[in-house]
Simulated scan of single mutants.
Amino acid sequence: MEDVYRPPAPLLTFEETREVLAMTEIPKPSMTLLYSSTRDGGDFGTMVDKVGDASGLLFLVNHDDTHRFGAFLEGQLMPCADPTQTNEYPVPHFLISISGAYAKVTKVPIPEAQQVVEVAGRDAFIKATNMDSRGKVYLGDGYLRLAFGSPGPTADVRSMLQWVKEDDLPDGYLGRRNDDGDGTLAAGMSSTAKEIAIYHVKSG
């Protein structure tokens, strides 16, 4: 697990690692680092190449050292074969608050109908339905948007938007809310992460 401690700051402590891996319910889980923005840069295409066709993806985000969060995707990141199109597909996944939004590591379930991932081709983008903004990767039907900007998109996956509807926030939420009561696992809904890493989690 030494890769968890890559600079500029640890994404997880060993205890947090145990708690997060337990949430995946994968027996005897092991982690392999596929992509790190510190090591590989923030380019969307590089991230897609590094992740490849691995299934069982743990996204870890260090927003500002205080706020750290993640997502676990049981399936793959699957860009459309046509680089000018996007690919939208259902796959089980959930969010994780590591620090900042909750007092302890907390699983943030996503309603089944929203367990949808959308990945843009290299020459495409995903447009938000209610704002003039665009991104390249949406998890949770938009709860986590990477390579995101207004108007966007940006090539840097660290530029992101992260939010959770009020009704989907587990009890104990400590973070910021917007006027509708919705929250975020980051320090702010629209922000640039200090570090993003993606791990392959598998049994054994």
Rank of each mutant, 00 (worst) to 15 (best):
N178Y: 06
Q114R: 15
R6C: 11
D123M: 12
Q76F: 00
A124Y: 01
I110T: 07
L144G: 00
P8S: 11
I110Q: 06
A147Y: 00
V157H: 02
E19Y: 08
S99Q: 12
P10M: 11
F69T: 00
Y102N: 10
L95V: 09
G149K: 02
N62K: 05
E15I: 14
S36D: 04
D82A: 07
G172P: 11
L139P: 02
L95C: 04
G142F: 00
T46R: 14
A197G: 02
A193P: 00
T66M: 12
E25H: 14
Q114G: 10
L174F: 07
L161E: 15
A22T: 11
A81Q: 12
A81H: 13
E2P: 04
T184L: 06
T86V: 15
S150C: 09
L73F: 02
Y173N: 01
P27W: 11
L144F: 11
E166R: 15
L161D: 12
V108E: 07
V201L: 03
I96E: 04
T17Y: 13
G140A: 07
P79S: 04
P10T: 13
R145I: 02
G70F: 03
L33V: 06
T184E: 06
T13P: 12
R68S: 06
R122W: 07
G149V: 04
E118H: 03
A147T: 05
F44A: 04
R122H: 12
D82I: 10
D141K: 14
Y89V: 07
E19W: 10
K107V: 08
V116T: 13
G52Y: 09
I198W: 01
E195I: 00
I98Y: 07
V137N: 03
K50S: 07
M131I: 03
I196R: 02
G41W: 05
A124C: 09
L11A: 10
E166H: 14
M160N: 09
S150M: 08
D182T: 03
G188V: 11
G70R: 00
F69I: 04
H200C: 05
P8F: 11
Q162V: 13
I26M: 13
